[in-house]
């Protein structure tokens, strides 16, 4: 009999603690601060636009590009293969639905740098170590890949390969973004994530 009373009192006391806590369904960072900081400041966390261009022309399916800009900006200019998750939405929903697949590398990009860097730290902090950024964002993409020009009269084989990659990625970018709006939307919509529905039940 006494054990029942003790157990009831314990449960009551524990729920008293819970009543004082600001509980939500939101998650918290699970990484250790020191490790997270050194991971995200490491160069390995960034890809250059040239590396991303290479992924695109190879149609590498181990890579998922995530565009953190607003839907309007995304509609105007999208990098082929990217999906759009506006940054404010990204940090208020559980990113499990977008980043849950551990077999792909998620590469964030935004207009410039800042949002993609937030997203990198946020994702890695929640334990998605398969997250990276494209350094420089769309600004850098346009400056490097789209406006690349061959100057001088001699070109080494390596330079030539790089130039070729940029040219082809640039062509794919232009092709996608010059599609009529309705067609383009259809194409982009088809790539959208459908939120994973949980399944379960009892008894």
């Amino acid at each position: 009999m006494i054990i029942r009373k003790e157990f009831s009192v314990l449960l009551l006391l524990l729920s008293l603690i819970l009543a004082l806590l600001p509980l939500t369904a939101n998650r918290s960072f699970t990484a250790k601060p020191d490790k997270l900081l050194s991971d995200v400041l490491n160069e390995d966390a960034s890809f250059t636009v040239d590396q991303v261009a290479e992924f695109i022309i190879r149609e590498d399916n181990t890579v998922q590009l995530i565009d953190l800009r607003s839907p309007e900006e995304f509609r105007k200019q999208a990098i082929p293969g990217a999906v759009n998750i506006p940054y404010p939405e990204f940090v208020t929903k559980d990113p499990e639905i977008w980043l849950g697949n551990k077999n792909v590398r998620n590469i964030f990009y935004s207009a410039g740098d800042i949002e993609s860097d937030y997203a990198l730290v946020y994702a890695r902090g929640l334990g998605y170590d398969n997250s990276y950024v494209m350094a420089g964002g769309v600004t850098e993409w346009i400056r490097t890949v789209m406006e690349t020009k061959f100057t001088g009269d001699r070109i080494t084989a390596r330079e030539n390969a790089l130039f070729e990659t940029r040219r082809r990625a640039g062509e794919m970018f232009t092709e996608l973004n010059s599609l009529p709006d309705s067609l383009k939307m259809k194409f982009l919509e088809s790539k959208k994530f459908s939120a994973k529905k949980l399944d379960g039940g009892c008894e």
């Binding site: 509980l23 369904a25 998650r27 559980d94 499990e96 949980l198």
Partner: peptide, 19 residues
Amino acid sequence: IGSQFLSYFGLLNLNQVYV
């Protein structure tokens, strides 16, 4: 009580619990 404590200590993602 257990799931709320586990969630508070970052050991359980309540979004992944079926409602």
